[in-house]
Every structure is written in structure tokens, then in C-alpha cells.
Write a protein that binds this DNA or RNA. Sequence first.
DNA 1: GATGAATGAGTATTCATTCAT
DNA 2: CATGAATGAATACTCATTCAT
Lengths: 197, 197, 197, 197
Amino acid sequence: MARKDEHDKKERILDAATMEIARRGYHQTTVAVIARRAGVADGTIYLYFKNKEEILASLFGRALDRFIAEGRRKLEGLSGAEAKLRAIVELHLTLVGQDRDLAIITQVELRHSLHFLEELSRAKVGRYLGIIAEVIAEGVAGGEFRTDLDPVLAAKAVFGVLDEMATDWVLSRRNIRLEAKAPEVTALVMAMVRPVS
Amino acid sequence: MARKDEHDKKERILDAATMEIARRGYHQTTVAVIARRAGVADGTIYLYFKNKEEILASLFGRALDRFIAEGRRKLEGLSGAEAKLRAIVELHLTLVGQDRDLAIITQVELRHSLHFLEELSRAKVGRYLGIIAEVIAEGVAGGEFRTDLDPVLAAKAVFGVLDEMATDWVLSRRNIRLEAKAPEVTALVMAMVRPVS
Amino acid sequence: MARKDEHDKKERILDAATMEIARRGYHQTTVAVIARRAGVADGTIYLYFKNKEEILASLFGRALDRFIAEGRRKLEGLSGAEAKLRAIVELHLTLVGQDRDLAIITQVELRHSLHFLEELSRAKVGRYLGIIAEVIAEGVAGGEFRTDLDPVLAAKAVFGVLDEMATDWVLSRRNIRLEAKAPEVTALVMAMVRPVS
Amino acid sequence: MARKDEHDKKERILDAATMEIARRGYHQTTVAVIARRAGVADGTIYLYFKNKEEILASLFGRALDRFIAEGRRKLEGLSGAEAKLRAIVELHLTLVGQDRDLAIITQVELRHSLHFLEELSRAKVGRYLGIIAEVIAEGVAGGEFRTDLDPVLAAKAVFGVLDEMATDWVLSRRNIRLEAKAPEVTALVMAMVRPVS
DNA sequence: GATGAATGAGTATTCATTCAT
DNA sequence: CATGAATGAATACTCATTCAT
């Protein structure tokens, strides 16, 4: 029970932080505001996080862990690099499109300083890029994709396309669903890797 | 002469801001530090800029204006959408790769809040996306590119690839030149738009 | 105890502010100086007051509340408008003359802007003028005072006399006691209201 | 002509300062704002005034000089202390009531610090109090007024009444004319000094 | 005399973090 | 574990004043 409560409290803080930071931006969000929304005292935050920045880092870590876990599960059932890459595109757009608050944070607030971006997000995004690169390498090896592809560079290109779609969705306040773009985006991504016939 | 001095002083402030913000990050850079490096008094900053944020906006505006002007000039001499798109890729990587300080700012520091990104950079980036979209539309109309392309979406994808390459270059401290990647990146971009033969 | 501490701290800040503002003037007194003399941190001030101006307002509010409370108590035991008006004169000079620092603030520093004077002091001074007017009205009704008196105007005249004596005492650095003037001032005030025999 | 221009420019600055300070208050009024309204450059102000505070002092000095000059002229034609005191009351209310901007400054903004009030206004107000005291002394000597009056103290009381009427008029935004109160105020003032019959 | 660009000292306020209870 | 009162460092911006032209 104690474990559960503790877990709940940490989660509550992260949820509160997600809402507030998405609405106000990282710098405009005070620790006091997060604490109030989470229903805890200011000082309690520091029992669970070393400092304010660690809240943002945890937020992103939690999201990316879920993201990658969900991804691995989906990819396991699939065979063929093309099927997997299609699944990645669809999954990326679907998961990002599921929580606009979180998307605002990952697409905008997270990138607020070189230091932070270097230390935290890149290290974790690296894992994600690695997964995409693996799939592309598999496709290259298996003859499904162009043989002159550099899997690492191509993975960055694919990520670039997906990331831009996500950012564009966050910045345009229109109420369309991000995953609606999946077919067209998939076509563009597949065109990048497909062998010239 | 007075005109020249005034112009110089504003430029000096922008140059100083570029260096400092690239090294320390926007929030860690004080107005006093920018003033000292520019060789002016703190108050002088406010004769040329409404506030600190306007410095950042001006910085980006100045860079993008040069960027687009240079782009238009290069594109004018070219005929054919493919040639133009190749030129855009090369130009983007070359220009971003020319000034690492500026690149740090455009790829990282500029994105410090949703509000700022919405109001300023997107409005200006929109012009750039528009140019790319025009080229793609030209290619679609002329049969050089796939006819099922949505020029606006494809332009975002192209921009996403280029932007990710730039961010990756900024974050990796390796001393390679960004434009060295141009051939491979061009191949990926062209694959996205080229008709399936 | 907590209540007591909190009360004490707020009082300490007000006492510190009274001393500093009386000596330096409102604008020359920094929040840091008040905090240092009160023995608290700068930020602590803002746990008890919204801003610097609210300190000044509170200062005056506290003083006037005591002033009026003391006045009501003294007046209750008296019968007859003349006795009451004499008591008011004496009380005014005695209370103002009791604390020169506070007097400097009420007679000088408080009047530092039209806005401030309008919003704060007048609203509260109005209560005081009201009390004087009531006593005069009572005297008029009871035949103790001239029947052609307008109690509201006469109250302002009485207040004007008392206020000028206080200001004069504050500005003259001589070490006389303000209440020493009470008999002569009372004579002047009574002359204003007494019926022509 | 040069003399005239110079005079005009100084006057223009004082007029501009009167308007701006009355509306914004002394501290909210910048030298730049006064300069703009006066139609001169910021630096020009300092050719005519040592600093910002001297503008306020000059403003008041100019007004009080006119005030006293006008007063002396009116009093010269009169004989009898009572007639003179009546004239003073009427003149005070009339002149203050003539220019609300100036009245705001003399009744409120001028009192922005103990130092300022001590050094400047009191010295000049002293001259005015002296005139009133002389008239009262004349009345006492001539048997028109009560013989037990202290002319200096009585003069302060008279001034207090007049000053309070002026302040009250400035703070009440009602559109009545100040001099309308002259008869009643005169009655109160005369009651203070008239012998008990 | 007149200008107005440049100066730089000066300060209220915020807020992440701590720690006594 | 939890609290929240207290801390105090940190900083953008204003504006009276100067002085080279």
C-alpha cells in the first residue's frame, strides 16, 4: 500500500506537471503551481525529484519508456522490415497524437536549452533512433530496402519527418487528428527507403 | 554616417547576442552580458530592442531573411524542380553549417516556449516551407515528381529531414562539416518525391 | 504560537518600515532596508504584503485604526458636544505627537501621489471626518454650537486646523511637544463652533 | 527677443510640467515626457533647470509668487484687518480654484518627501503665513480681533482651514467651484478671530 | 544655445530550494 | 514521510543626467 501511495504521488506530480507545463511553458510553471495541482506541499516535490528540471526529464523518460515498450510489443508480432517501418510511422503519429499536453512538452518545451537537450533527450531519443536504424538495416540486408542506404542516417531522416509532423500538429491549433496523416506520411517514408525498381 | 553607426550598433548587439546565447542558452544569458560583449551600456540595448525576447526574434529574423534571399538568388538561375530541390537541400545544409552559433540558436534556443515558437518562428518558417512547396508543386505539375504528392505535406517532410540533420549536427560535437552530408541527404529527399519508375 | 509568531513578524516589518520611511522617505527606502531592519529576508516581506506600497497602506491603516479606537473609547465616557470636541482636539494632538516617525509618514510621506491619497487615505480619513461631523451635528442640535453650521464643512475646517498643527510640528524640528499647543488650539476650534452670544 | 524666447521656453517647460505632473504624479512623470510636451529636447530642460526636482520647485515658486503678488495688490486697497482677512480667504479659494492642475500639484504632489517639503515649500509658505499673521496682528492691535490670539498660531489655523478646503476640492472629483465655499469658510475663519461679544 | 543618443546606477519582485517541526 | 514558512540570489528594465556634435 505504501508503495502504491508513493507511486501514486509521484505519478500525480508528473501528471500535474504535464498539464501545467503544456499550458504555461516550462519557465512560466512554478514548482508551487505543480504542487498545488498535484495536491501536495511544495517541499514534497523534492522528496521525489532532485529539482525542477528533473521533473521535466522524468516526464519525458516516462513517456519515452511507454513509447518504446509499446513499440517493441507491436514490432514483435510483425515480420518484414517494411511492415515494421510502417508500424513505426503509424505508432509514432498515434502515440504522439494521443496526448496533446505531452506532445507540446516533447515537441517544444523539452528543447529549451542545448545542455538539457544534449544530456537528456538525445540519450533517450538515441534508443529510439537505434530501433528505427535496426529495422532499416534489416530491410537493407533482406533486400526490401535500397542497398545504398546508410541505416543510421536514414533513421534520422525518418525521425525528422515524423518529428516535423508532430511539431506541425502541435503548433497548428486545428483540431485534426495527427494519425489521420499516417497513410500519406507512410508513403513518403517508404519512398525514401524502397529500392528503385 | 549616423545611419551607419546606428546600423553597426544594432548589428553589434545581435552578433554579441548570438555568441552569448549559443554558449549559455537564452535564459542564462543576461542582457548585461550581451551589452558588455557588444561594447555598449545596458540601457543602449533598449534603444534598439523593446526587450530581451525581441533580440532573439530579431536574430532569427535577420538570419532567415538572409537565408531566404540567398535561396531565391540560387534558385533563380536554375530550371527544373529537381535541380531546385537539390539546390535547396545543399543550400540548407551549407548555410546552417556555416555558423554553428546561429545554428545552435535556431535548432535549440529558439524553441524555448510554445508561445514564442508559434508567434515568431512559425510565421517566418512558413515562408520557407512555402518556397519548398512551390518547387514541389512545380515538379508535380511538370511530371518530374510523383503525381500523388501533396506539395505542402511533402515540403514539411523535406524540411523535417533537413531540420533533423541540422539538429543532429548541432548536438553531436564532432567536427564534421554539415554539408558533407548533402549527397546522401539529397538522395533521401529525392527518393521521397521521385516518381516510381 | 504560530499565530503569535506570524503576527509578530508582520508587526516587526511595519515597525521597521515606519522607522526607515520616516528617516529616508518612501521612495528612498528600499524593501531590502526594511527587511534588514525587521530581521527577515527580502522575500519574507512578500509573504505578508503584496508589494511595497501595501506596506505604506497597512502602516497608515494600523495607525488610524488605533487612533479611531482610542478616540471612540475616550468619547464614550463624555457627554456634551463641546466636551467631545475638546477631547478630539486634545486626542489628535496627543496621539500624533506621541510618535514622530509615524507623524512624519502620515503628514508627509503618505501624500506622495494623487492616486494613493485618493484610494487609501481619504477613504479612511473619511471615517474620522465623519466622527467629527457627528459631534458637531450633535452640538448644533443641542444648541451648544452655532445653528448655522454645516457639520460636514465645519468638520473639515476642524480637521484642517489640527492637520496643519501636526504638519507644522513635523516640519519644525524644535523639540516642543505637540500637545502643549492643545489649549490654544482648542480655543480656536471652539471659537469656530460656539454660538455668538 | 532672445530674452523673450528664453523666457518663453522656460515657461513652456513649466507649463508642460504642470500638466503632466498633475495627471501622472511627480514620480510617474519622466523628464522626457515633459520635454516632448514642451516641444524641446530632453537635454534642453537642463539648460533651464538643475534637475527634475528643481522643475517642481520652480513650478511652486512661480505659482506662489503670483499668488502673493496678487494678494498684496488686493490687500493694499483695503483697510481694516477683517476686510483683509476676508479678502485672503476669498483670494485663496479663488486662486487655487482657478487651475486644478496646479492645485493638484500644490495640494498633493509637492508633498512627496520630508526633505523637499522642508527645504522648499515651507520656506515659501512661510512668507504667506507671515502675511496672514500680520493681518491678524493688526486686527488684534486694532481691537477688531480677540486680544488673546497668538497671531502666528492663528495664522496657521487659518491656513489649515484653507488648505484642507483646497485638498478636499482636489480629491473630490465633483465639478463644483472651490470659491463657492468662500462665504461659509469666511464665516468659520472670522469666528475664530472675532472677539467674544 | 539646442540636441538626443548614450549612459549605467539602482531595485522591486519572483521562485527554486531548504529545513525545522 | 509531509509540510509550507522562510530564504536570498538573481535580473530585466527605467530614466535622470551628460556631452559630443
